[in-house]
Design a protein around this nucleic acid. Structure first.
Length: 470
RNA sequence: GGCGCCGUCGCCAAGCGGUAAGGCAGAGGUCUGCAAAACCUUCAUCCCCGGUUCGAUUCCGGGCGGCGCCUCCA
């Protein structure tokens, strides 16, 4: 498949180095607060990438996504909460897992956390390698990376460091660095902070070292196939990851770099530091469903900014409802024999969809293919009915699409968990059926209205009445 | 100051050299006890100005507008 590589700023053919299994690392969440929907745009986009590689391209996956569970924010927040760092970050890891499940993310092969011993040791080892190769220096007990020792520094972000000029917000660090561009690998212990000592002196890891070290520890020697994350990580985080991994090993770190654009709110990016964030729970509290959010977040190409609003969330919800209504209609198709024309049309749509996804994950284009097929198949049902065999073919196609998108199955799982017991709904539908047969329409309409007030919509058809969540 | 992205129908959004996919909303119709669902019809010349080309929404240049990175951030 074709994939845009930030390293080259071009779309390239992607194949895993060994031809079989994709070794992918994606930056996860810093677990000092609940993830917001901007974070989840990135995670969902990378989930679609993972699904496409796995289910469409047929590769095996070795996918690592970390939790950053030690940094200034996690430390400060845990101290304010009066609990240990571990206990505090456990809470948000748990919350993150719940949100991921609600949003239909596939679980990945490894979710390392920075403060696990094996990982801290890997970081210290890597710092040792960097020191052996002359890339580090010490200052006040902290260890720094000396940018000047790595001529290639800046190749990912394409920053002209010689030319940092007036107007740039240059780092004014309280630490004693030789060069403003240098960054910390290991921070010396401060009073009251968690500390570890595995060979770099007592302290804690700098932010960037964890990803370099854990990626190579869990995925094996570089280059790994893909490294991904939000676009804001290009600099400094990913640039520094490259410096660390390549400085330590002398080998390329990652062949492909994939970055997901921002989610914006009104006219600015959504970020915790700006405070303009919505969590998944906020979305649910407004009466929307996680599946609708997932649909919205994948319906704009991952490399374009997406401006969130509840208005477009409602549009996404309506579109997704149409999709599941169609699939439900298919369940009732039982008439006649198979139509060869349908098989042909479905095969063509499958090919078109695959081509869209293989083209740098053109999910919006893929959705277009799906809805075109949907309309034509609806028309076919209206025109001459549809056999169970035809319906099965169509259903298979949508299941194939959804293995990549992961949104229809999610919606259906939500639908099958009604706000109150399904038995009760079925009983009321039966009562309404009898009322209608006896032409007691007032009672029939009353049942419809009551159910609607309780979040259940009814749809009558020749083959009976079906219910769905509002 | 440097680097980069974006501007397509009321809203969202693909396409990116050969004459504008799709979704949502709207209008008219078919169907229907009601309500939905569904179908049919209808609904854009692509921010502006130049240039290149037989031909540009698509390439180049210049505007205007929006956003990002150069600091923690998905």
């Amino acid at each position: 498949m074709r994939l845009f590589n930030t390293l080259t700023r071009t779309e390239e053919d992607f194949v895993p180095a060994d031809g079989k299994t994709v070794r992918m690392y994606t930056c996860g969440l810093t677990v000092y607060a609940r993830g917001h929907i901007g974070n989840f745009r990135t995670f969902i986009s990378l989930d679609v990438l993972r699904r496409a590689l796995r289910h469409q391209e047929g590769y095996g996956m070795r996918h690592v996504m970390n939790f950053t569970d030690v940094d200034d924010k996690t430390i400060n927040a845990s101290q304010q909460a009066g609990v240990s760092l571990r206990e505090y970050t456990d809470r948000y890891i748990q919350a993150f897992r719940e949100d991921c499940a609600a949003l239909g993310l596939e679980s990945v092969e490894e979710n390392p956390r920075a403060t696990d011993e094996a990982n801290l040791k890997a970081m210290v080892d890597m710092i040792g390698q960097l020191t052996a190769r002359g890339h580090t220096y010490e200052s006040d007990g902290s260890t720094y990376f000396r940018i000047a020792t790595l001529p290639e520094y800046g190749k990912l972000a394409r920053l002209d460091h010689e030319g940092i000029q007036a107007g740039a917000r240059v780092d004014s660090d309280e630490y004693d660095k030789e060069d403003a561009r240098d960054f910390v690998l290991w921070k010396a212990t401060k009073e009251g902070e968690p500390t570890w000592d595995y060979g770099c002196g007592p302290g804690r890891p700098g932010w960037h070292i964890e990803c370099s070290a854990m990626a190579l520890r869990l995925l094996g020697d570089g280059p790994i196939d893909i490294h991904g994350g939000g676009i804001d990580l290009i600099f400094p985080h990913h640039e520094n990851e490259i410096a660390q991994a390549e400085g330590a090993t002398g080998r390329q770190f990652s062949r492909f770099w994939v970055h997901v654009e921002f989610l914006k709110l009104a006219h600015e990016k959504m970020s915790k530091s700006l405070g303009n964030v919505y969590s998944l729970q906020d979305i649910i509290d407004r009466g929307f469903r996680p599946s609708s959010l997932r649909f919205l977040l994948i319906s704009v190409h991952y490399r374009k900014q997406l401006t969130f609003s509840f208005d477009i969330l409602a549009q996404a919800d309506a579109a997704l409802t149409r999709l599941t209504d169609f699939l439900a209609r298919l369940e009732r198709a039982t008439e006649g024999e198979a139509h060869p024309a349908i098989a042909e049309r479905v095969a063509a749509a499958r090919a078109e969809f695959r081509a869209m996804i293989a083209s740098d994950l053109n999910v919006p284009g893929g959705l277009g293919v799906m809805f075109e097929l949907l309309r034509e198949m609806n028309a076919a049902i209206d025109a001459k009915g549809m056999s169970a065999d035809d319906a099965a073919l169509i259903r298979d196609a949508f299941e194939e699409f959804d293995r990549v998108l992961g949104v229809i199955a999610l919606r259906r799982a939500e639908d099958s968990a009604p706000p109150f017991p399904a038995d009760e709904i079925d009983a009321l539908i039966e009562e309404r059926r009898l009322a209608r047969r006896n032409r007691r329409f007032a009672r029939a309409d009353e049942i419809r209205k009551d159910l609607e007030a309780r979040g259940i919509l009814l749809e009558d058809s020749a083959t009976g009445t079906r219910w769905k969540r509002k």
